[in-house]
Design a binder for these strands. Structure first.
Lengths: 237, 237
DNA sequence: CGAGTTGTTGAAATGACTCAATGTTAGTGG
DNA sequence: CCACTAACATTGAGTCATTTCAACAACTCG
């Protein structure tokens, strides 16, 4: 169990006393697929760590647009915003597979942070890195076309959820609809469908609820350089 | 001088000893317009606080696209990434007006953070809030059209740099070209030019290197609801 | 005053979205 | 285990916002 905590950078290099304290003050809970671990708009009251399963972070814009911020898995924390007073969760988190989590209330946390300075430093590092990632995605959205963004998204998901098989193909082990992908990359389900289909015809991927990447190099190429337009598969045929 | 530190949420509620320690270990420096306070790609070696002037955070993408992340002014910190080992600055910071800054090296900082836990908590809060802002902008980019994004950008800049005059107009006191605005909102200088011109003809703003918002309410309307398309000014005429 | 930067504007090209119709898959209950 | 249903995926045609590119006008700063 203690090992579990160490999966998260939050708990790196903490004294045993701190880990014990954290474990002792944690409250466990379980969720079924579809359950909300966090509801957007609720007061941000605590931080959690996923100990099992996969969940997705969804954000609903004021005008009703749904966006998929990212997926989290075992060992990843959520709700750091509870460290800031008077805040509200800016997004919902929904279980994709059955999930378990450990929970700490905001007060417990602030106490722990003041008692174990290292914890604060770790949390800060986590947030700094996360913000950099957010910033990077922002930049991609700003400058890249849809096809490239989808490629980047698949690579990212492969990194997080990929299982390589004997043939070197990577299964992105995560049930995901075209619409999920669209919300994740900032496009429409029609566009993702078309793009995935094109890549399937090119033999680069096997589509389905769980995508298989047959030719990761090709996707890298798309993500970083030119699209397939100029390649062997004429567009729209 | 101590008051200066308190402008930043980093130093909220710190004991006097901590403030004194921070002041004692700070190194001051000055910059002329155009100077780089930080160069993208350099090793992230320290954190600073602007004590004077305005600077812009610019990020260059691998494919050579320039983006303008945000502006910072007096009291705002930059370089928190130096808290994470082995990092590189992900962006450049350039002085827009003459600037002064206080600087702390990464090592100094880590020591200070471990010695004054409250500092870590504060920094964490700053980063959590900043990440939320980044996330919000990401979402806007994902779901909003260019015109609305420009409106949102102007409102944000007015918030940060606005000086209200007798007539209730707001001067955004920040020299900014169309291209800056374009890099800031993720569009082209042509689009920002057209949009600003349209708003000028509608009497909503006075364009120039420093934009004046005559009718903030109208911009709010554009930012939140419908564009002017359906309004008194026919588009493209 | 003149050279370079910055801003404006039009026309054409286009990537992506919208919408509607149709096909496919997965999961449910008989 | 099969049939049925609802969710998901594909595809085409039409549209539109935005970009691109080119030409020119207006600043502004030595």
């Amino acid at each position: 169990m203690r090992a579990l905590l160490c999966w998260n950078d939050l708990f790196v290099d903490l004294p045993d006393a701190a880990l014990d304290h954290m474990l002792a003050t944690a409250a466990p809970s379980d969720y079924q697929p579809g359950d909300l671990l966090i509801r957007q708009g609720d007061p941000a009251d605590g931080l959690s760590i996923l100990t099992q399963g996969t969940a997705k972070l969804c954000q609903l814009t004021p005008d009703g647009h749904q966006t998929l911020v990212r997926y989290i898995t075992c060992g990843q924390e959520f709700g750091l915003i509870a460290l800031v007073p008077e805040q509200v969760y800016p997004l919902s988190i929904a279980a994709v597979t059955p999930c378990s989590a450990l929970y700490w209330s905001g007060d417990t946390l602030v106490q722990a942070f003041l008692r174990f300075p290292r914890l604060g430093l770790n949390a800060l590092r986590v947030m700094v890195v996360r913000n950099q990632e957010t910033q990077l995605r922002y930049q991609e959205l700003l400058t890249e076309r849809v096809e490239r963004r989808v490629a980047l998204a698949l690579l990212r998901l492969a990194d997080q959820f990929g299982r390589t098989d004997e043939q070197g193909s990577i299964l992105v082990d995560l049930p995901m609809t075209r619409e999920d992908l669209a919300e994740f990359t900032g496009t429409t389900l029609f566009s993702t469908s078309r793009i995935l289909r094109k890549w399937q015809l090119a033999g680069i991927i096997e589509p389905g609820r769980r995508v298989v990447l047959n030719d990761v190099a090709a996707i890298h190429t798309i993500a970083e350089a030119d699209s397939l337009e100029s390649g062997p598969i004429p567009c729209g045929r």
